[in-house]
Structures are given as structure tokens and as C-alpha cells.
Design a protein around this nucleic acid. Structure first.
Lengths: 144, 144
DNA sequence: GTTTGCGTTAGAGCGCGCTCGAAGGCCTAC
DNA sequence: GTAGGCCTTCGAGCGCGCTCTAACGCAAAC
């Protein structure tokens, strides 16, 4: 993972994920996916174990990832970044497997999560004021 | 904790904390502090145990909180909300106990944390786009 | 042919931040 | 005087999300 000017590892990862989308028909190993997404092989196996990923095996029993799996990993990673619990992701993935008729429910899940993220943003912004206040206070004196 | 229009429990708590500042000289029980800050009595004892709070005892051995302790609890709560680890709070509190000469170091800690929170805000904002994209996609079809 | 290196599985372990249980003390109300 | 309720301490337990170990397999490189 290469560092960029702002030095934000998570944002770097997001940029990397956008840049490293495999072309249609490509087949990738677990190491490839780990490198391209920044999700460790251990975690990829863990995600598969708990039902977040479905991955084929080659003749040697090794995992074979394609663009669809790549996109899934990136999606999972972003939802985790925004604090979506594993349990909810399991529910979402289960709905995807059930087929098109679950699209309204999936949409509802995403809408609810968007609200959760917006609340999170509001909280962070609010709490940031306390930090700013603290920093300003260190110009004078600082209680606590 | 009373609900407000937007239904954001954490923001409600922040508002409540601002509204429930005890007047100078007031003495509060652990239950009072729990109610006013939204931090449970269990957690308040835990914070004390790990060195984040210093609280006096009355004749019966019960904890007695004053405005300074209240402010400390509110501060701790806000730093936790923004993801500051307990270890860092322990370090900060240790610096406070060491006295005024640690103010530059405390300031540096706060500045670093402010940057961390800003990064967090950037990440959330970035990842929010993925959610928005997903939601838009449900108007059409949705891969993954 | 053996070393190197990547992969596999099952399952244990860990760090964090609480959260709870048990056993008991003090104070007030009835 | 006894029941209820809130307080105390100590220590164990828990949910989450990984993270790592052990033991082993296959396959190309030397």
C-alpha cells in the first residue's frame, strides 16, 4: 500500500481498490486479492468461513477469485469501514443469495445504514468541537 | 435519556451533558453522574479502576462526584465517541496529574487526535459515496 | 530429490471495552 | 427489627472482529 500526501491509510486503500479492479475474466489468487484490496488473506478466509464470500477452488484446492468476488470484498471492506456490523453484512449477503426479489429489503438495509453513517458524521462533527475547544483552552489554562 | 426529533441517541447524550452541568460545590452520587452523562455506573467504576477518574469517598465509602469529576467524565465520553483508545486517555490523564508542565504534550496529543478525527470524517464521507452508489443502483440492477 | 514458497484446514487465542455476578455493607421506611 | 434499595469490592465473562498457530499439501526452482 503506497502512501500519499495526506498519509491517510484508509483513504489510500480506497483509492487503491478503485485503481486495482480486475478486468473481466481475470482469475486472482488470495494473495492477489489481499494485495489489491488491503484485506489480509487471513481475513478473506475468515469472511468466507462466516458466509460473506463464496469462492471457487482450482484443481489444487486453492481459492480462485474473479472480478465479482473482488467487488464483493471491496464492498464488504467499505461497509466495515463505516461501522456496519458483521451480522448485518451476513444478512445482506444472505439476501443477495436469495435473488432479485429481495432487492427492496436490501435497499431498505442500505438506506438505514446511510442514516447510521450520517448520524456518525454528525456525532464526530459535534465531538470535534470539544477537541477544538480543548486545543483553544491550551492557549490559556485547561481544566480536567 | 429523552429522545429528540432526529432520534440520534449519541447527540441526545451530548446535549444532555451540556444541559446537566452541576453547579459549583454540588456533590453527586454515582447514580446522578450516570443519569446526567449517560455513562453507566458500571463503566464509571471501571474508568476509575483503570485510572481515568479519581473520586473521593464519603463516610459510608460511597463515591462523591463534584463538577470537576463531571467534566472529566464528559470529556472522556467525548474522546471515546471519537474513537480515542482507552490507553491514550490513560496517558492523557496521567499527564494531567503530572501538572502544568505537561501542557505542551497534552496539546500535542489533542492536535494529533483532531487529525485522526478529521481523517475519520474523510473516510466516512468517502465510503458514504459507495452507499449512495449502491442505493442508486437499486433503481436499476445491483451487482454483488 | 529436496528446498522454497504459497496454499489449505480446523481451531485456539487475543485485544478491546465494557458488562455482569456474587457477596456483602449502610441507611431509610415501615 | 427487618426489608428494600443503593452502594461497595473483586473478579470473571462476553461480544466483536479479527489474528495467528499447527500441521499439512502441492508444485515449481535448483
Amino acid at each position: 500500500m503506497t502512501a500519499t500526501v495526506d498519509g491517510n491509510a484508509a483513504i489510500d486503500r480506497l483509492r487503491m481498490q478503485n485503481a486495482a479492479v480486475p478486468e473481466a475474466g481475470a482469475t486472482l489468487t488470495i494473495a492477489d486479492i489481499a494485495e489489491r484490496t488491503g484485506v489480509t488473506a487471513h481475513t478473506l478466509r475468515y469472511y468466507e468461513r462466516i458466509g460473506l464470500l463464496d469462492v471457487e477452488r482450482d484443481g489444487a484446492g486453492h481459492r480462485v477469485y474473479g472480478p465479482a468476488e473482488y467487488r464483493r470484498v471491496v464492498f464488504l471492506n467499505r461497509m466495515r469501514m463505516t461501522g456496519m456490523p458483521i451480522r448485518e453484512l451476513q444478512r445482506y449477503v444472505a439476501l443477495v443469495r436469495e435473488g432479485e426479489q429481495t432487492m427492496p429489503e436490501r435497499l431498505a438495509l442500505m438506506l438505514a445504514h446511510r442514516e447510521a453513517v450520517r448520524r456518525q458524521l454528525a456525532e464526530l462533527t459535534f465531538a470535534l468541537e470539544t477537541i477544538d475547544f480543548k486545543i483553544t483552552a491550551y492557549g490559556g489554562d485547561c481544566p480536567v
